[in-house]
């Protein structure tokens, strides 16, 4: 992956995962969620993890975020253990649901992490305004989450994840619960946001077109046990519009993702 914009060839990867395994102990038998995963993500990359339900893509993201502990192998985030990385607030996490606090306004939801980090009020306000502008929600500061649509709520949660300027943005099917039209719109906003901020993004999805549209690299995973089947480098330009999905280049990448999923028996019953 050679990213135009200076990030290419950097020695230290943002995420460096080697032979990572995770086995859950359940009552009847152990479940291998991740089986010897190797993954390297460089600064400025947009990496999608794609696979059917139960392939461990969310688990892998949670390991990076130190929400799960691996049972084997190593994961280095910015050269640190996931726990150190979490304590140093290197990443922002966007969940499947917006997880906004209903008793807080939009602005105070965005500033929640800043309050926890002890940042003063004036600075909190400034950053909230900045991030809400970035996700196109200026003017909604005083609203409560229940007054917003699902797509707007998820944009608030992205603004919240970006509010403390993390190096790495981890997203777990953030648009999974939204309708396709809203999803297209948010994908477009997200790719613009990524291009403008230069953040490293790891994005979990089970939508092929979403993965191809957003990513510079697509990691295809298979279920039971969770393994990496294929890593596809995308040669689409970094600047993307929805029309790019009609191009042959896009279709070819999508076809390769689909082949990868098929090889992993993702379409079997």
């Amino acid at each position: 992956m050679t990213a135009p914009g200076g990030a290419a060839g950097q020695a230290k990867p943002v995420v460096d995962i080697r032979s990572l395994s995770l086995t859950f102990q359940t009552d009847d038998k152990p479940v291998i969620a991740l089986d010897r995963i190797d993954l390297r993500i460089d600064s400025g990359d947009f990496v999608s993890l794609i696979g059917p339900s139960g392939c461990g893509k969310t688990t892998l993201l949670r390991v990076i975020a130190d929400l799960e502990r691996p049972t084997g192998g190593t994961a280095l985030i910015d050269g640190m253990s996931p726990e150190e990385a979490r304590l140093k607030r290197i990443y922002g996490y966007v969940f499947q649901a917006p997880a906004l606090q209903p008793w807080r306004t939009v602005e105070r939801n965005v500033t929640l992490p800043l309050e926890i980090f002890g940042i003063d009020k004036a600075e909190r306000k400034r950053r909230a305004d900045e991030q809400l502008a970035l996700v196109g929600l200026t003017g909604f500061e005083g609203k409560y989450p229940w007054q917003l649509s699902g797509g707007m709520q998820q944009r608030v949660s992205i603004a919240r994840a970006l509010s403390f300027s993390p190096e790495l943005l981890l997203m777990d099917e953030p648009f999974g619960a939204l309708d396709e039209i809203t999803r297209d719109h948010l994908n477009l906003q997200l790719t613009e946001l990524w291009r403008r901020t230069g953040k490293t993004c790891v994005f979990v999805t089970h939508s092929i077109s979403e993965a191809v549209f957003l990513s510079t690299r697509i990691v295809v995973m298979s279920p039971r046990p969770g393994r990496v089947l294929d890593v596809i480098e995308s040669d689409l330009p970094r600047e993307r519009t929805l029309e790019i999905r009609e191009t042959v280049q896009f279709q070819e990448i999508a076809a390769r993702v689909r082949r990868g999923l098929k090889a992993g028996h993702s379409y079997d019953e």
Partner: peptide, 26 residues
């Protein structure tokens, strides 16, 4: 408290006191 909301507080490395006042009690 919702497991997702608890995970969110964990990603912020919130202290037990912060967790109590900013999530559990409300």
């Amino acid at each position: 408290a919702d497991p997702l909301a608890l995970d969110l507080m964990r990603t912020y490395s919130a202290t037990p006191a912060q967790l109590f006042w900013r999530l559990r009690l409300p």
